[in-house]
Structures are given as structure tokens and as C-alpha cells.
Design a binder for these strands. Structure first.
Length: 198
DNA sequence: ACAAGGATTCACT
DNA sequence: GTGAATCCTTGTA
């Protein structure tokens, strides 16, 4: 089944919650995402126009935008919005629901709860790297995305994590009360007295 | 050509 | 809670 991801990213991103992403023998149920809205979003990698790295985001929705950061971590986005509008949803956390032994072996010594809780961890558990850049999620390729089962999960909304620009925008979405949601500190520049918890 | 910083994670105190 | 690891991408000269 093909998900329609061509709408505005802030509307489409939450619909990814509860969906299942498969790659490399592991399946993850997505529990947390963040929206990045290209030209309208100073925190987006696509804010300043197309480059070699972000080219995938300028294409049609339903593809994977992968980037390498901090010299050691991959992070995965699902490209959203109409073709040409460079927006995407960062997959921030999930629960491993298939291939958990494989995920454990990739993640080293790590509690099961943390196998895919965090953008870098999620990619490591699924073995997503630059080799999968631009992969289409709804075809017959190695990576696939299945929509969330009915009924849709209850969703919570809050500010994004780790961004140094536009940190106040409530563009982070997670499944209310879910145990498999990241709990990282916010950007120090974005300190707010009442940081939402899960 | 060069310098700065990053949509993070982990070990250690 | 703090800091290191580590290299790619980007802006500026």
C-alpha cells in the first residue's frame, strides 16, 4: 500500500507514527518524527537550496533522505510534500518489532528499549547507510514502509530536539505515552522551563 | 583552500 | 552532567 505523503509536511509527518519501516532483516514501528520544511525552515538542510547532499529532498515524496553527521551517525528522513518542495520527516525513534536478534547484534551492548530510540540508533538497528540514499519506500526495493494500522495512535506535539534554529516550532510528533520515544536533552540554546516529557 | 559546526551517541565522573 | 569521538558539508576567502 502506498502512503500519500504529498501534503504539507507538518500534516503528513504525524501520519508516519505507527507505520512500519523495514530494511536489512529488521522492522521498526515508528514512534517519533520531526518535520523539516525546506525553504520555510531555517533548521532544514534544504533551507539554502539544493546541494549534492540534500538533492533527494527536492524530488518526489516517499523516498529516503539519509545524511551522515557528527562524524559517526546516519539519520533517516522520509521525503514529504509535493515534488520540488524540499521537506521531510526525520525518523527520530522506533520500536524494533522484527529481527530483534539482528538489531541487538548491530547495536552492541544496549537495552532493547534503546535499539532504535534515537535517529542514529534507528539507522544502526536497520542498517541504513548512504548506500540507501534516495531509495523508494513503496516499491519492490530492499526498504519498505507500511502504514500504521487502524485506529491511528494518539499523538503528542512538542518542540524539535537538537536544532539550533527555529527551536521553538512545535514540529516534533510522537505517540502519546509510548515507551519507545527518545528522551534527549533539548538544544541548550532552546532551554525552556517546562520541557515536555513523552 | 580552510575553518567551523553539526537534525548524536556513549563512556565516564 | 560533561566531554570526546570523528568526518562530512557548507560558507567564506
Amino acid at each position: 500500500m502506498v502512503m500519500d505523503l504529498s501534503g504539507p509536511v507538518v500534516e503528513v509527518a504525524p501520519t508516519l507514527l505507527g507505520a512500519t519501516l523495514r530494511h536489512g532483516g529488521v522492522a521498526v514501528r515508528i514512534t517519533e518524527v520531526e518535520a523539516y520544511d525546506g525553504p520555510n525552515d531555517p533548521a532544514s538542510h534544504a533551507y539554502r537550496g539544493p546541494t549534492a547532499r540534500n538533492a533527494t529532498m527536492f524530488g518526489p515524496p516517499g523516498h529516503l533522505y539519509l545524511y551522515f553527521t557528527y562524524g559517526m551517525h546516519w539519520a533517516a528522513n522520509v521525503v514529504c510534500g509535493p515534488d520540488g518542495h524540499a521537506s521531510g520527516a526525520l525518523l527520530r525513534a522506533g520500536e524494533v518489532i522484527e529481527g530483534i536478534e539482528l538489531a541487538r547484534s548491530r547495536r552492541g551492548r544496549s537495552p532493547d528499549r534503546d535499539l532504535a530510540r534515537g535517529p542514529g540508533r534507528l539507522c544502526q538497528a536497520l542498517h541504513l547507510t548512504g548506500a540507501m540514499r534516495g531509495a523508494y519506500l513503496f516499491g519492490a526495493g530492499e526498504v519498505s514502509l507500511d502504514p500504521a494500522p487502524d485506529p491511528a495512535p494518539s499523538i503528542s506535539i512538542g518542540p524539535r530536539v537538537g536544532v539550533s534554529a527555529a527551536a521553538d516550532r512545535p514540529w516534533r510528533f510522537w505517540i502519546t505515552g509510548d515507551r519507545y520515544v527518545s528522551d534527549y536533552r533539548r538544544s541548550p540554546r532552546a532551554a525552556v522551563s517546562s520541557a515536555p516529557r513523552r
